[in-house]
Amino acid sequence: MTKSKPRITVEDVRRLGALAKISTTATEEEGLRRELASILEYFHVVDQVGDGVTIDELKWDAADLRHDEVGPSDPDGVLKGVPQRKGRLVKAPRVF
């Protein structure tokens, strides 16, 4: 994996927009390109972290997290919060 800083192009901005379902105008694209490039260049400070460092995010010294166990679901509890229902079916607004 190359460590060189990416050059962000207007095409990249459009591609990201398509992935994120956000459209951009031609006027916005160049401004966004400059902003994203500047921020991503700053982000490269994490290059100081070596590749050998492991992630231990699940190890909490003091916390006792809820155990990852299979348990029953609570469909009645979920239905209680549903604004509109028909029996045990959820009514959703028609959009398309």
């Binding site: 994120a20 991503l40 972290v49």
Partner: peptide
Amino acid sequence: ILLGTFVLSAGYYEAYYLKAQRARSL
């Protein structure tokens, strides 16, 4: 959202998101 999409995208995930999580561990 656009930046988040970028740092998770193929080809950039290791350089950004993975590195950031390692930094978090340190």
